[in-house]
Nucleic acid binder design. Structure first.
Length: 479
RNA sequence: GGUCAGUUGGUGAAACGGUUAACACAUCGCCCUCUCAAGGCGACACUCACGGGUUCGAAUCCCGUACUGAUCACCA
């Protein structure tokens, strides 16, 4: 069996959006499942749409995701060049388009765009019309070309019969040939159209599995016609359903939807993003959702790709990101979280203790800031905050509790979570209070919040004895 | 408008003609608990867009309707 080769063929038009990334992921997984090759090819036949830095974004994204390509513009390979605008490639397209003309499978067309439009209109729904340029003699064509007249090369399509292809996801699809137009292969500027370049490249690069979005489903019969004209083997087609923003719209840059870069900036992890989007349009056969990239490659099965657009649910991604954060190696977690902590509270505190305190609470890294600002400086708060139904506390109760807490702690020698908790809970027991009645007012005094990451005692440990006592003192003074 | 495709809960989804229609997110309850989380437990589709048919039996097969999407460029 031939070695599986898939390709990711983006056009460098800006940010990498999620749908695109998922297509890249699937292409990667399909290749890696069978120890095949994953190739990166840059499709830039449209010179008007080049965006500066866009290619770097593609490289960076693939790298951050661990979707390493075996061949590509930057890493080389035996099937280069891997950029369509490369002069060497342009020559190839030109040559093959003309070869098709010689074979009688395509023809030179001098029609103006308006002429074509008119004829299409006249053809109506049947769509098919006979291009008058098809009837030109070889001599005349050559003469007009020699005279410098602009021309394009169009594929010849016979209106009779049907064209079918098998898609691994959507099954067998058949269309009538008369609904297919005689597509342009080579544009008047000498560049190939995207569709043509695609077929040539996929064939020349020995691509066995064509993985792309299902918006290409309709044009696939035309691709097949080109393969057939050359007598080439037709690849396996794997069309993926779209990733949607909502019921009606696809996720897109134009709608201002989050790109991969945006998600990273918000503090989502590449592994989590990849894991999540793998599940958008594909379901594993076992009852499980958390997969590393390698595990995905093993579990992936083209047959289990769905046919319906899947709505991108940021809530589920957020949950999954939290799962990754909670289950990752602690050292790695500390490294990840350290810059965020230091940015907010600076030096002076044990950032690992802070990291431990928020470990079970953080889902996305950008949430950390709001969670821990009070360590640096307690915020303004109203005495109403001392009210807590479950703790049976309010400002009045706090007035009696806080001094007790203060006394217990000011004489405490060993300052850590456990020792603080022990002394306070013993005191609570002695006085007949529930722990929470002691702890809640303390938490408010320490954090200026009704909810805080970690219990009052954990916060006190991080703050240190002096600062903790100072904040409790302030709490007492204001009551 | 033509053509092609799709339709299981708020969301992702499983189900290879016979199950109480999995599982996960979200939501809501309860438990745990020094708050919030995390974790544990439970609730949440009398039904699989709708209407016919085939079958002893249909979310699963067939036909039609509705709705949704894609496509119909010298854009990629």
């Amino acid at each position: 069996m031939k070695k599986v080769r898939t390709r990711f063929a983006p056009s460098p038009t800006g940010y990498m959006h999620i749908g695109n990334l998922r297509t890249a992921l699937y292409a990667y997984l399909i290749a890696k499942k069978d120890d095949g090759d994953f190739i990166l090819r840059i499709e830039d036949t449209d010179q008007g749409r080049l965006v500066e830095g866009a290619v770097d974004i593609i490289y960076n994204t693939l790298k951050q995701c661990g979707l390493s390509h075996d061949e590509g513009p930057d890493v080389g390979g035996n099937y280069g060049p891997y950029v369509q605008s490369d002069r060497m490639r342009s020559g190839i397209y030109y040559e093959y388009a003309h070869k098709l003309v010689e074979m009688g499978k395509a023809h030179v067309c001098f029609c103006k765009e308006e002429d074509i439009e008119e004829q299409r209109k006249a053809a109506g729904d049947s769509f098919y019309f006979v291009d008058p340029c098809k009837l030109l003699s070889k001599e005349e064509v050559e003469k007009r070309i020699a005279d410098g007249e602009a021309y394009v090369i169009r594929l010849n399509v016979e209106p009779e019969g049907t064209t079918s292809f098998d898609d691994e996801v959507y099954g067998r699809i058949t269309v009538e040939n008369k609904t297919l137009d005689e597509m342009v292969l080579l544009k008047s500027d000498g560049f190939p159209t995207y569709n043509f370049a695609n077929v040539i490249d996929d064939h020349m690069m020995d691509i066995t599995d064509v993985v792309r979005g299902n918006e290409y489903l309709s044009s696939t019969p035309k691709y097949n016609l080109i393969y057939q004209a050359f007598g080439w083997d037709i690849p396996r087609y794997i069309h993926c359903p779209p990733v949607m923003k909502d019921e009606h719209q696809k996720l897109s840059k134009r709608n201002g939807d989050a790109s991969f870069q945006d998600l990273l900036a918000k503090g989502y992890l590449p592994e989590a993003i990849l894991n999540y989007i793998a599940l958008l349009g594909w379901a594993p056969s076992e009852d499980r959702e958390i997969y590393s990239l390698d595990e995905l490659a093993k579990a992936f099965d083209v047959k289990r790709i769905g046919t319906t657009g899947a709505i991108f649910d940021i809530d589920k991604l957020t949950w999954m990101n939290g799962v990754y954060l909670r289950s990752m190696d602690m050292e790695k977690y500390y490294d990840l979280v350290k810059p965020y902590i230091q940015e907010v509270i600076g030096e002076g505190y044990d950032y690992k203790l802070v990291a431990d305190a928020i470990h079970d609470r953080v889902n996305i890294l950008s949430e950390i800031r709001d969670m821990i600002t009070f360590f640096k400086e307690p915020g303004e708060y109203d005495n109403e905050l001392f009210f807590n139904k479950k703790a049976k506390t309010d400002a009045e109760v706090a007035k009696t509790i806080l001094p007790i807490v203060y006394d217990c702690l000011s004489s405490l020698e060993t300052w850590n979570n456990e020792s603080i908790f022990t002394v306070l809970s013993e005191k609570a027991k002695e006085l007949g209070y529930k722990n929470i009645t002691m702890m809640y007012p303390m938490q408010v005094a320490l954090s200026s919040r009704s909810v805080a990451p970690g219990g009052a005692t954990a916060i006190a440990e991080i703050l240190g004895k002096d600062e903790s006592l100072r904040r409790i003192r302030n709490g007492i003074d204001r009551l």
